[in-house]
């Protein structure tokens, strides 16, 4: 399994996909953040609501990681490298499990870096503007830890979806449409159903306001309790990952 892990990490290091991921993350998180710090008036920047908003600059990272996970798996089929993966390790479940694990770790490390970068940029930006900005935006260590775990889960989810559906463009497009639009529409029409949908559940694990936190009950009445949301997330990952491994075992590589 160590050899498999080395091979998987080398796959990540030896193409520009991972580098592209980091560039996209820098653009979607730090770009707007730097612009806001540079352009907003001092009294706006010092306001509580704005500091809270700045602290969530890394909220888009899981979406990028989801696509990264899908690409990580679908690229194997697209370029035919899955043939060599299975020739070297014919017990296919090992290939799949190691890919899921490595991508979970890469997702978590990437989120950790993103959160740290956001923190550093806010601190440095505030110092340059001469404003004392709360770089955490009110987040606790627990909030950060949950964001990092969810990033790992979402990346793994992407890998499993890629293994299930293989077709790269269709899988990426359908998943983004589902995550960004379909789930939210269902949540508006049927909140009791929407709250159980996968990407909304992932959000509930990492969300800042949860039932019992003293938050506005009107905002959180339909939300799952955090432990419940976490267990449902794990269940989603487990179901999709087991399905991905099972299908990979039976699929002909032609």
């Amino acid at each position: 399994m160590i050899a498999l892990a080395r091979a998987e990490l080398l796959k990540l290091r030896s193409t520009r996909t991972a580098l592209g991921l980091f560039i996209v993350i820098l653009v979607v998180t730090l770009g707007p953040l730097i612009a806001l710090i540079a352009l907003l008036p001092e009294d706006w920047l010092a306001a509580d609501g704005v500091t809270g908003f700045l602290g969530t600059a890394s909220a888009l990272v899981p979406l990028v990681l989801l696509v990264f996970g899908i690409l990580g798996m679908t690229n194997e089929y697209r370029h035919g490298t899955i043939t060599y993966s299975y020739l070297v390790t014919p017990r296919r479940w090992q290939v799949m499990v190691m890919k899921l694990v490595i991508y979970a770790l890469v997702g978590m490390v990437t989120m950790l870096l993103a959160v740290a970068l956001v923190y550093v940029v806010i601190v440095i930006g505030g110092a340059i503007r001469g404003i004392d900005i709360d770089a955490t935006g009110g987040s606790t260590a627990g909030d950060y830890a949950r964001q990092i775990v969810v990033a790992g889960l979402v990346t793994t989810f992407g890998v499993a979806l890629g293994a299930l559906f293989r077709a790269q463009v269709i899988t990426v497009a359908a998943t983004l449409i589902w995550a960004l639009f379909v789930e939210n529409i269902i949540a508006i029409i049927k909140p009791a159903v929407g709250t159980w949908l996968p990407f909304i559940v992932f959000n509930q694990v990492s969300a800042g306001q949860m039932p019992g936190d003293g938050a506005d009950p009107a905002l959180t009445s339909e939300m799952l309790a955090r432990p419940q949301a976490f267990l449902v997330s794990i269940a989603y990952i487990a179901i999709v990952s087991v399905a991905a491994v099972f299908i990979s075992l039976r699929r002909d590589v032609t």
């Binding site: 050899a3 498999l4 080395r6 091979a7 080398l10 796959k11 030896s14 193409t15 520009r16 996909t17 690229n75 370029h79 035919g80 490298t81 043939t83 060599y84 993966s85 020739l87 070297v88 390790t89």
Partner: peptide, 26 residues
């Protein structure tokens, strides 16, 4: 086995393409 000459990631160098396979095969 040689099954398909297209079984390599186009963005990877020839040497790295082999290193990936070699890493998995120890």
């Amino acid at each position: 086995a040689l099954l398909d000459s297209s079984g390599f990631h186009p963005g990877r160098s020839g040497r790295n393409a082999l290193r990936v396979i070699a890493a998995g095969a120890r």
